[in-house]
């Protein structure tokens, strides 16, 4: 660092730094902590100790009831199916598209890149009315397939940019060396390029999974039969019906957080590089 400041001043700066960091950490964690706290507070203590920092007794009853007596396990499963399928398809499709943008020079490439960028920025609310009607007409309302198709299309542009940046990071020489060594283009892809882009594909998979797991509005609009609900839809309708069962709702929320947090832990490393590569994604 740059020298020349007095010791006392430096101490003060360090204290300020840690205080600021502490505030950010508290702000980030507090809501999650609170959800967790309510989820382990026994029903009987909720009204008396609802706003204390930690209840006098803790219980896992709420979790037990969510898992046994509600449809949440089913919602959870639906969400897993939708998110995993979406993430897998998007990663495949985006890998192919990203490879094309990274490795070929062809007429119309700039136009394609621009189109992809455009879909990144135009408001999705624009397509809510038509999609609601079109999906109804082709019978994809109330089906997880319909959701998977929509989520895949929404995420493919972002994922393509992400994959393109990973392919760009692999020198073209490697592929050419493989082709001279005896590979066809497809073999070179499978034996050299894919192994080297696996971390990138993992990151893309994670980003898309998180996005699909979080989506609410289209799911809410398209799904209303009980056994097709995703977690987001299930939780929201649950609130509508049993608005006062706080403990169970929060227990369910904590469960919904688990996969997202797991993926997040895995994605951590890619956040800074990944997001700058893909530029713009909520």
């Amino acid at each position: 660092m740059i020298a020349g400041r007095s010791r006392a001043k430096r101490r003060l700066a360090a204290a300020g730094l840690y205080a600021a960091v502490g505030l950010y950490v508290a702000f980030a964690l507090f809501p999650l902590f609170w959800t967790f706290k309510i989820s382990v507070t026994p029903q009987s203590l909720l009204y008396g100790e609802g706003i204390t920092v930690w209840p006098s007794a803790a219980t896992l009853d709420n979790y037990a009831r969510v898992l046994r007596a509600t449809d949440f396990p089913r919602y959870f499963l639906n969400s897993v199916v939708v998110s995993v399928t979406t993430a897998a398809i998007v990663t495949l499709v985006a890998s192919a598209a990203g490879y094309s943008l990274s490795r070929f020079r062809f007429r119309g490439k700039a136009a394609v890149a621009f189109l992809l960028l455009l879909t990144q920025t135009f408001p999705l609310v624009m397509v809510i009315p038509p999609i609601y009607r079109l999906m109804g007409e082709i019978g994809l309302t109330n089906s997880l397939t319909g959701l998977i198709v929509i989520y895949t299309a929404f995420n493919v542009a972002f994922a393509t940019f992400l994959m393109q940046s990973y392919f760009d990071g692999i020198p073209k020489d490697l592929e050419e060396a493989a082709m001279i060594d005896g590979c066809t283009r497809v073999e070179a892809l499978r034996r050299v390029i894919v192994p080297l882009t696996l971390p990138g594909m993992g990151a893309t998979l994670g980003f898309v999974f998180t996005a699909a797991w979080s989506e609410l509005l289209f799911a809410l609009m398209l799904i209303n039969s009980e056994n097709q609900k995703t977690f987001a839809v299930g939780l929201l309708t649950f609130i509508g019906k049993f608005a006062v069962d706080w403990g169970q709702m929060m227990a369910a929320s904590v469960l919904a957080l688990v996969p997202a947090c797991l993926f997040f832990a895995f994605l951590q490393r890619y956040l800074v590089t990944g997001l700058t590569a893909g530029a713009v994604k909520g």
Partner: peptide, 10 residues
Amino acid sequence: MVFQSYALYP
């Protein structure tokens, strides 16, 4: 072929 970058498979 021997490449300038060597192109060894990492």
